[in-house]
Every structure is written in structure tokens, then in C-alpha cells.
Design a protein around this nucleic acid. Structure first.
Lengths: 226, 226
DNA sequence: CGCCGTATTGAGCGCTCTCAAGCTAGGTGG
DNA sequence: CCACCTAGCTTGAGAGCGCTCAATACGGCG
């Protein structure tokens, strides 16, 4: 989301999945017409809404979810700063899930038609988009791992990658509650709590509320079994 | 995979994810240079192989999987007749998983570069590809459902959709073993067996080996909670 | 400072796993 | 054509991991 209106060297924009697109678009007209400042638990779009826009998370985080017949929420995916959201709707032309912010979030909004017409004639952007979509299909393939420890270790390592917190000393900010994390991983919130405590006792992480430092990645990797 | 070399009215080709592409390509040169006839348990590509081709399943079925540090297999996705496989590799340029046939399978093979150059100038194909990818991101979002019955009911209903077996009387052919199905759903093979037996006793399905008839979809839908 | 949503911790139960023993179906060879 | 063989499926019994329910602690925000 370069969006020169913000700043050419805005580091958040440079990391963004839309950066290349904004960069190109700028030559003609600004790609992004709207930037929304959303509070926690605000809705980006609802299940069955028509696909009109796609979004880039400038800062903050979003979850997509589905409410089942019993009224229970089922989280489908998390979207973090720099990631694009909305493409799940291309097949059916409407959003199959609802999207809600997990925290205060800045979102860049792009008309889907405008986005597609920008892509049409630009193979580099086509490749960038496919790359982004193909990466996403590989997220979360660990949610059916046998044990809660495997799932949670894998989840933390994936988050670190996506948040670009790969330096040994880096710490991650969990955007989601224990409840949401458990929902995504098919575990109870209490189980998340217990496993994080155990990981801390084992010296693998230091965990303070939503801030987590990975202290022993190779051991986490081993637990994750990947 | 039209591939006129086969038959313009080949029904399998018409249902194929590549049909539109073959249709266009025919104007210049054949898109598909190779059609492989694979036996059961043959490898299409291996984890870390470079991305050189994408494939369309003409008939049969394929699983993608990953071998963990313990040597345990983890199934990531199933690909059925008419579906395209290989795009998971675009992001990293190599295949993040291995792909193996589940039964005798005919596969059409397309050079990735050729495929991309065909798409570059054709917005309709771009949209078709995005649609196909976006659909796939919505598969399997039920694998973390609370109970084994929910997961299995959802799986059967999804399969019916993908196999185009939506007529009330239609029966599906499961391509995969109970073991593979359990692996994908995060359940033991024995659990799959037990739940299918239970569904049959409840009159929801008739199950004979790998042939399953859905007798009461609305009740299955209710169990699936979707 | 007090409130409320969220996180932690504990106790007991139940679903699904594991292990083990038959069973079935399909393929092979005499 | 039938007997055998083997991989995959079914069924049973017992154990364990993670769930539920409940009480307590924490932390952010007014």
C-alpha cells in the first residue's frame, strides 16, 4: 500500500502486499481511494456481502470467521499487517466469511474492478498476486497435528515468519486472544494457556500477555515436527 | 484440459479447470504437450522440486503431503478430477509438498511458463485462475471442528460438491483410504470407520467400501453445523 | 480505584487414540 | 475356478489428552 499520499518511504507500505500495485498505479491515478481507521472488533465485511473491494492491512490484524448453525464462531484465517484480504470471494463473487478486526487496525481499500484492470496488463503484478495467494494456501497446514504442543509451536513459528520476527531476539505481538487462537487451532483457550505456560517453564519462550519471545527456535521446530 | 487432441466433447475435459485455457490455446498451438497415465501411489512431484509444470487431473485423484521429522506423513490437500495442482509452488518457486496419486490417474501437464504467458494477455483466463485459487482457499475449513462427526459430515458434503454429485441419488467414490481421510481430518483411521458405521446406522449414508451414497443431506448438513 | 473482559489454574470427565484381534475384498497363482 | 494371501477395513477394550466447568488472578480503561 504505498499510496504515495502516505509516504514513499513509509516502512509499513514497503512491507505491504499491495506495495507493487500502488507503485505502478501511481503513474496514472492513485490506486487507493480510502484508508479506514478501524477500532477493535469492527467489521470489514460480512459473510455473503458482495465482493466490491479488496483490502490491505496497513497495521493491526483481522480475522475471517464463520458462524455455524449453533451460533458458534469458527475462525478461518488471520490476516496480519502487510497482508491482502478479500480474495476468498472471487470464486463465488460474495464473501464466504465475515472479517473483523482483532485490534485497532488501519486498512487500505481498493476497488476490486480497479485492481483487476490494473493487473490485466501487467504480468509482474499478476505474478505477485499469484505468489501471494499461493503462499496463503500453505498457511495453517498444521492445525490437524496430533498434539496441542505441535499445533501451538507451529503456529508461533508461522507467526514469527509472517511478522518478519526472524531475528533470534525478536518478540512477537499476538494480535488475537487465547480464545481466538484456540478456535483457529481446534483447541480450547485453556489448553493454549496451559501449553504456553509449559513452553515457558521449558525455557522455549518468554510469554507476557500477548508478547512472546521465542527463546529456543530449534526446540520449537522439533516440537512442531516440521 | 480440452486438448483437442483428445476430443472436443470429452466430458472430462469440459469439467476440467484447464478447459478454458486449452480452448484458447488451441488457436495457436496445443497447450498440453504431455498426458501421463499414472498408476496408484506414483509421485507427480516431490517436496522441494522446482516448479516447472502445473497439472490438471483428467481422471483419478492426487494427495499432497509432507513428511515430518518423525517420518510421519501429513496430508495437506486432495485434488480430484478436473482440478488443477501445482500452484502452491508459485511463492517459493519450489513445491512445498509432495504429490502422489491415490489411484490410477490421468494427468495433463503444462509448462508453467507457457501457462503464465498464455494468461498474461487474457483477462478472462486471469479471472478463471483466480477464481479457482480462491475456491481452493475455502476447502477444508472444517478440519478443526470440535467433533469427529462434524469433520466427517463436512468432508463428505464438500466431496459431493467437488465431485459434482449433488443430485440426491448420486453416490461418491472416495478416492482415499480411511487412513488418508483420517490423516487429512486429524482423526485416526479407526475413528473414520466408526463414524461412517454410525452414520449408516442412523440412515444418513449407505457405505460400501469406498462407495458412499448420501441418503439424508439435510441431517448431514445439520451435523456438519454449516 | 473499581470494573469488566481476558487469562490462568485446578479437578474431573469424555471423546478419540492406541493397541490388538478379526474380517473383507481383491488380486495371484496353481 | 478355487484356495490363498495381503492390504485395508472393522470392531473391541482400555488409556490418555484435551474439554468442560468453576474459581481465581490479572490488566487495561474509565
Amino acid at each position: 500500500m504505498t499510496l504515495r499520499a502516505f509516504s514513499k518511504n513509509n516502512t509499513n507500505c514497503i512491507k505491504c502486499g499491495l506495495y507493487a500495485f500502488c507503485d505502478v498505479a501511481e503513474l496514472n491515478a492513485p490506486l487507493i481511494t480510502h484508508q479506514q481507521h478501524l477500532k477493535r472488533k469492527e467489521t470489514l465485511y460480512s459473510c455473503k456481502d458482495n465482493l466490491t473491494h479488496i483490502y490491505a492491512i496497513h497495521s493491526g490484524a483481522v480475522k475471517t470467521y464463520h458462524i455455524d448453525l449453533d451460533g458458534q464462531e469458527r475462525i478461518v484465517q488471520f490476516y496480519l499487517a502487510g497482508e491482502l484480504i478479500g480474495f476468498e470471494a472471487i470464486h463465488s463473487n460474495y464473501h464466504p466469511f465475515s472479517a473483523m478486526t482483532l485490534m485497532q487496525t488501519q486498512v487500505c481499500q481498493v476497488s476490486f474492478n480497479k485492481f483487476m484492470s490494473l493487473i490485466e496488463s501487467n504480468p509482474i503484478l499478476q505474478k505477485a498476486l499469484l505468489s501471494s495467494l499461493s503462499q496463503r494456501t500453505n498457511f495453517g497446514h498444521y492445525v490437524t497435528a496430533a498434539t496441542s504442543e505441535q499445533r501451538i509451536a507451529s503456529f508461533l513459528l508461522e507467526l514469527a515468519k509472517r511478522l518478519d520476527a526472524n531475528q533470534p531476539s525478536a518478540s512477537l505481538e499476538l494480535a488475537m486472544s487465547r480464545q481466538d487462537m484456540g478456535n483457529y487451532l481446534g483447541l480450547a483457550a485453556e489448553t493454549i494457556s496451559r501449553v504456553l505456560t509449559r513452553f515457558q517453564q521449558m525455557g522455549l519462550i518468554v510469554c507476557h500477555n500477548k508478547t512472546i519471545q521465542l527463546k529456543n527456535r530449534s526446540q520449537l521446530q522439533y516440537i512442531a515436527q516440521e
